[in-house]
Write a protein that binds this DNA or RNA. Sequence first.
DNA 1: CTGTTAGCGCCTTCAG
DNA 2: CTGAAGGCGCTAACAG
Lengths: 345, 345
Amino acid sequence: MIKSAGSKPGEIPAPTMADVARKAGVSAMTVSRALRQNSYVSEEARERIMAAVNDLGYVLDQAAGSLSSRKTGFVAAIIPSINNSNFSDTARGITDALENTGLQLLLGYTDYSVEREEKLIESMLRRRPEGIILTGGAHTARARRMLEKAAIPVVETWDIPTNPVDQVVGFSNGEAMALLVRTLAAKGYTRFGYIGGTTSRDTRGSQRRAGFVRALEELGLPTGRVISFGVPPISMEQGAQAIVSLLDRWPDTQVVLCVSDLSAFGALMECRRRGLRVPEDIAIAGFGDYEISACSHPRMTTINVGCYDIGQLAATKLIEAIQGEGGTAEEITLTGYRVIEREST
Amino acid sequence: MIKSAGSKPGEIPAPTMADVARKAGVSAMTVSRALRQNSYVSEEARERIMAAVNDLGYVLDQAAGSLSSRKTGFVAAIIPSINNSNFSDTARGITDALENTGLQLLLGYTDYSVEREEKLIESMLRRRPEGIILTGGAHTARARRMLEKAAIPVVETWDIPTNPVDQVVGFSNGEAMALLVRTLAAKGYTRFGYIGGTTSRDTRGSQRRAGFVRALEELGLPTGRVISFGVPPISMEQGAQAIVSLLDRWPDTQVVLCVSDLSAFGALMECRRRGLRVPEDIAIAGFGDYEISACSHPRMTTINVGCYDIGQLAATKLIEAIQGEGGTAEEITLTGYRVIEREST
DNA sequence: CTGTTAGCGCCTTCAG
DNA sequence: CTGAAGGCGCTAACAG
């Protein structure tokens, strides 16, 4: 504990604006003005105020300020996992877009659970954020109701919900995966396998799987070689185990697509460990273009979905809606993705 | 924009406690009591209140509450990078420890810059967090002063500062790296190389390097094979480039230690790509025990430092200090680390 | 350019 | 178990 702290008796209460005002010989209102960028304060007064602020070690109390100004300066963002670099890239994009707007990020993660998302939304709304960014379009009914009641701009990302709450910045996970299938089919592969999680929780994961199946159907190729493996997120280790089962069951599989680069990497390394040549004996592709896929040996084919840009764009749209007149139409912004062919296919 | 929103004229203002109270036929005070767990409210009143809350879609405004209760329910945490799974594991540990305490995390990242840390600390202190968790012991003078003035519990993590602000939950990065050197020296390696970043910004990185050199000196082994490579964080790709330079310059190097598993992985893959056998031709070890090191081929030797536990323990200590009488002594809690020997050495 | 007045929405405190 | 009064620290709105 520093000096005297906590709620000890004899504690020195933090200085308030009134303390600064007294010390600088002005009113609290002038201090308030001096501490913001806009409003006019004489150079002389400003200097005295800043000196007093420094002397006292005064730090503005935004909770009090936002109560009276009715603006909290918070923006909430909810991602599935903070440990997944795809989503933390999105979080970085959000933070960077928020820089210099005076808005502060309230970040939470759901562990891929809509129930946890609901709780998070509730606890975040208690902080009265001026806008909120969500991942995906699957929410509980109560979460949806709370969002609508909150009457703040909402941006759903990483997906294209069929029934958006408000704005959307995302892409079709199914279409992206389908594109990958078509690209690989064009190279001559016909016997495709798939590794992903159980479909119940991770909506993006199940959309990718659906896109995989749909693309194969359209190409008239067999669709059955699918391994579903545990609840998301599917780890590298699970990818390794899954490819063993998959090749065990369907030994003539030529190429395996995975729900993400992480499981793909696990699968890739396991194949190398077992002496399989990639892509000669078995080709492998991931999803998400994580750092790892550009660096592995062999380098991995994957699909880049612009995680950082999603975050930056979502935040930009949100800021516009917050600062705008509130009349922005509901809007769906599609973000791009592209297949990155590397050595593993 | 949902329904009517933003600051449009004709907007429906969010319901307040008074609205709920009116609807439930009680006073605002009773609503306030009903919405918390403690305090006594009759079952009958509580039911009516909850019904009104539901009808109105009322969500408590914590900013107002904390102004009067003088407790914000915020805890701040600052990590170097949100994209590094070691630190996001720590963040998860913090979040998990905070669960069910009613405390909410305010998370920020510095990109390894003490200047950015200073700005973050300032903007977070404006939210009046009840405690703060930092990474490392290097702060600007002004940051230190602000922390001291704030008179809230502080926990520095991931390091053992020579002059702690308050509490510490960490380990010696230098000692951990030295242990790795000794472990490998015991296996017979004598010609060690090292890959890390420039030392100016990442204090943990430079401590690891110092530990590397110190351990070799104590063993009477040569210490010169060090490649410094860019500002942190050192990427996988930089690890790949660095090992090429290193082996180019010192071809007889037997084992290379890296500042983290990420650069070590890049180095490992690059060696495999060039047809080098690992560990026969060149052994490689990382630091941090990222998921990747357990899954790569060959699996990588590294050192596990309990990232998640650091976060959980730091938050637990912080909560104790917050809830305690404020008299907790300054305390240094050492966390454990252990070498994990795998196939790459 | 500066000050005054009032009140943001809730909780503390004290009375019933 | 419930209510009334008052104020947390700041800023909007208006007056000078």
